[in-house]
Amino acid sequence: MTAENPLGRLDDDDYPAYTMGRAAEMIGATPGFLRAIGEARLITPLRSEGGHRRYSRYQLRVAARARELVDQGTPIEAACRIVILEDQLEEAQRINAEYRRAAGSPDPTV
């Protein structure tokens, strides 16, 4: 963020720009759902100076994925675990691809 463009942080996926009500509305869920996935430690919203929960775009994508699984009948705790494992797998694949590039090996996903 620069002094000339204070709104630049709104382009940041990790900037906690959304209130609980707005976040719930955006993903088609209830505030109770957001509290439940917070209790399951899928996401940890930041708190405003007044103590209100604030969510980032990244957290909303994670929450939306959990909501999809719950809507398909997956219990919320299991949905949270699935989303965590999917995220870990994606990160491991990214790291593996970086190692392959550094070693000069072809990327098997291409």
Rank of each mutant, 00 (worst) to 15 (best):
A78M: 06
E90I: 10
P45H: 07
G51P: 06
E98C: 08
Y99W: 10
V110I: 07
V83Y: 02
R65L: 03
R41V: 09
Q72L: 01
Q72W: 00
P108V: 02
A66K: 03
V83C: 02
D107I: 03
E68Q: 01
G51W: 03
R41A: 14
R41H: 10
P106F: 09
S56K: 09
A79Y: 08
Q88Y: 06
H52K: 10
R53I: 07
E77V: 07
L85Q: 12
R67G: 01
A102Y: 08
A102F: 08
A102D: 07
I82V: 06
E68L: 02
R94H: 14
R65W: 00
L42F: 01
R67S: 02
G50C: 07
R100D: 06
P106E: 06
A63Q: 02
R53Y: 05
T74E: 03
V62Q: 09
R61T: 15
Y58G: 11
A40Y: 00
A66V: 03
S56E: 08
A92C: 13
D71F: 00
S105F: 15
I43Y: 04
V62G: 09
I43A: 12
G50D: 14
H52I: 07
S48P: 13
A40H: 04
L42Y: 01
P45D: 01
I95T: 14
S56L: 14
L85E: 08
A66R: 03
R94T: 12
I95E: 12
A103R: 10
G51Y: 01
A66N: 01
I95A: 15
Y55G: 09
V62T: 14
A97K: 08
Q72S: 04
P75S: 03
R101G: 05
L89R: 14
P108G: 09
A97N: 07
P75Y: 02
E68D: 13
I95D: 12
P106G: 08
A97G: 09
A64M: 06
